[in-house]
């Protein structure tokens, strides 16, 4: 929950701020991801580490990752129809996808995010 990721508490204000936050240089196919975790459970930690690694490897920074702790903001779990934890929601681009689990299956994650894996590496 450090560095690139920031804990999101109020999505509504966040949404309004979004255009301001984004840099004008952002690519058209920017991916917006939201990871819903439950505090510091091992699964949550793993999911966070996994998604960061996958994104860095295959997306080259063309993404925005927001992390939501549903223990702290349960209302968000309701709004976003979260059932399982951890859940990674691909908010943009559409279609919306929900990847549940600790994201350890890289192939499935990439498929779910509709990202072509970088050949080699």
């Amino acid at each position: 929950m450090k560095k690139t990721a920031k804990i999101l508490k109020k999505p509504k204000t966040k949404k309004q701020k979004k255009p301001a936050v984004r840099k004008p240089t952002v690519k058209a196919e920017q991916i917006l991801l939201r990871l819903y975790i439950t505090g510091t459970t091992p699964q949550s930690q793993r999911a966070l580490a996994n998604i960061k690694r996958i994104c860095d490897e295959h997306l080259e920074g063309a993404y925005e990752l927001q992390v939501v702790d549903i223990y702290q903001s349960p209302q968000l779990a309701k709004d976003e129809q979260i059932i399982a934890a951890p859940t990674l929601v691909k908010v943009l681009p559409s279609p919306l996808r929900r990847l549940i689990g600790d994201l350890s299956d890289e192939q499935k994650v990439l498929l779910g995010l509709d990202v072509r894996p970088k050949t080699r590496k």
């Binding site: 549903i70 309701k78 979260i82 059932i83 399982a84 934890a85 990674l88 689990g101 350890s104």
Partner: peptide, 23 residues
């Protein structure tokens, strides 16, 4: 629960449901 939206990518639990119900 929209099955078509969901992909399982590893270990998970239903804590989301618990949190919502508890809330």
């Amino acid at each position: 629960l929209e099955r078509s939206e969901i992909a399982e990518t590893g270990e998970y639990n239903l804590e989301g449901l618990f949190v919502r119900l508890g809330h």
